[in-house]
Nucleic acid binder design. Structure first.
Lengths: 342, 342
DNA sequence: TTGACTATCCAAAGCGCTTTGACTGACATG
DNA sequence: CATGTCAGTCAAAGCGCTTTGGATAGTCAA
């Protein structure tokens, strides 16, 4: 069933039927009702491709996901992010197009999505400090919102980020207040903007108390469980071992916890852990009592907000770039305690 | 830059340029070369929408993801599945369209994807034992491949599954051989086909040794960490507590491990654990020595295979449904040991 | 020289929709 | 009565591509 058939069936022109269904005012209420009922009854749905060809709007949002070549994985927070963004999109009649890209070939992917007319806007995931995608998208004139920020980018652009620096600064202060002096940072890849900022927060808090960050206690890698385990195990084997760990993701923190147990220590006693917590659906940080003391910020919420921002940008192309900075909450769980007396 | 402009630039007709680029034989090699070079130089990419309108092929594959209403989450294995499928799709020039759907509204989503002409084929995720989507898609005539199976479905359809029953049967036998008699099953939702089959395998192994499954030691829920923790904690508080746990996912097994530690037991000593392991990128089950004894099957590989099957079905619409059953590997890790002497 | 091919190219129709510009009555206005 | 206004409708063009059905020129055997 297409427009032509429907309009013939109704004895109306395609124009009128199209207008009736799309809410244009030049059609009588009576006709509109008749058309809507017939469309419903005959199960008519406009062909997306034809519609977008005619309007020039793709009615789709692009998400380009880099696949890490070392672990061939998609960032595990993506599922929750898209779960948040999804309903916003579909309420507005947008589809989601995802494009998987090996590492740095992303630029090409963006170019193609744009030139092929596949999408009306893009969410940029995993920005690095200096990220060529931002000027590129600006050049292309394709609306976009960055999930995160790019520290080295000077021009204006829309972004939604959490206050990573402040979150890790507070977490570090919390540990310092508990008496910890040897604090390890198990960070994400530090060319990623979020990880860079977290490190900055960590170092700032230390310096504020006249402590120097110890390179032996700082790691930066892709945030897998095994990475957390190995990093913590190695550090716990040091002569002058850390009494606390500040970790960039729950998954990695689980690895750290495993190493702590293996070393015969108890979480929150022999070794404290604070992690960042994206509040993932399948990996909730406890219920009444949090498992880990954590800096928490829901990535699902970020998805909702970012999607709304992007749709705004698409609706009003001339608008100023919007920004949104969310604060992470510091929640106190059972994984932290006073520094052991040494 | 569109076809019209490109062909004018070359002094050729649109027909010839289109044919040259799409590899039709009715164009001289010399002309083809000239066209290809110009297309490259001028950065020409055909508009996907126009192309698919003209050809009737959408050049896109649909993935409908149910969002669990209780946890508002997307199944965490999806990222890896799509990472596997992605390159197969993009090599063949297909885009990925994903559609998020709250729980059971899926049927409508499939119908719409089809009627709107958004996709040429669909991967069905998370089949239940009796799944209305299968007859629906058959009716619609839309090519599809099911990731998993639907036990109650009698008609033919294409699927790719792992041998869930055999995997859990073997795992149970392994525990029985170690002397365990009270074995708990921490399963996924049992209206899901995979969970149903796993339970069947578990019960079969018990019955083969004349043991009756104990309902107090069997749970079925969405596979989150917290679920594993709670279920295991409650069971460990029983008078006649289990000595081993058979768990349906790594994430849940991590919760089980947490409960075991909390109870003051040691993994592989006081309590053994076997889990199913999807071999997720961010959650590898150890490196040389596996953390958990596990039934392992890579979901990324399943994604690759399923995508290839689907593309085959699309290319050859009249073909017989294909099926593929992958065996899970039983890998022995440090989480299992002989049953404690009671 | 002719007819049959072959190789190479093109004009135009068509995919299913939106949108422009024009038309038709009905009604009010002067 | 002529004119203007307005609500409601439609025919047709156009979005960027593919594909059908020629057209043209060159080749070659009869």
């Amino acid at each position: 069933m297409n427009l032509k058939q429907l309009s013939r069936h109704l004895g109306l022109s395609q124009t009128t039927v199209s207008r009736a269904l799309n809410g244009y005012p030049e059609v009588s209420e009576q006709t509109r009702l008749r058309v809507q009922q017939a469309a419903e009854a005959l199960n008519y749905q406009p062909n997306t491709r034809a519609k977008s060809l005619a309007t020039g709007r793709a009615q789709a949002i692009g998400h380009v996901l880099p696949i890490s070549s070392s672990h061939e994985m998609v960032n595990p927070v993506f599922g929750d992010f898209i779960a948040g963004a999804g309903s916003t999109y579909s309420d507005a009649g947008y589809e989601i197009v995802i494009s998987l890209v090996k590492d740095r070939a992303e630029e090409r992917a963006y170019r193609e999505l744009h030139r092929r007319g596949s999408v009306d806007g893009i969410i940029v995931h995993g920005p690095r400090m200096k990220d060529p995608r931002i000027p590129l998208l600006r050049d292309l004139g394709l609306p976009f919102v960055v999930h995160g920020r790019a520290s080295d980018e000077t021009g204006p652009y829309s972004w939604l980020d959490i206050n990573n620096q402040r979150a890790f600064e507070r977490a570090t202060e919390f540990l310092l207040d508990l008496g910890h002096r040897r604090i390890a940072l198990i960070n994400g890849l530090e060319f990623m903007d979020f990880a860079y900022r977290r490190r900055a927060g960590f170092e700032k808090a230390l310096r504020n108390r006249d402590l120097a960050p110890d390179p032996a206690l700082m790691r930066s890698e892709e945030m897998t469980e095994i990475y957390g385990f190995r990093a913590a195990r190695e550090m716990l084997a040091l002569e002058n071992r850390p009494t606390a760990f500040l970790v960039s993701s729950m998954i990695t923190a689980i690895g750290v916890r495993r190493a702590i147990h293996e070393a015969g220590l108890e979480l929150g006693r022999g070794a404290s852990v604070i992690t960042h917590d994206d509040d993932l659906g399948y990996l909730r940080n406890g219920h009444s009592v949090p498992i880990f003391t954590a800096t928490r910020s829901s990535v699902r919420l970020a998805g909702e907000r970012a999607a709304a921002m992007l749709l705004d940008c698409i609706r009003d192309p001339g608008c100023e770039p919007k920004t949104q900075l969310l604060e992470a909450e510091l929640i106190i769980g059972a994984s932290t305690g006073p520094a052991p007396q040494g």
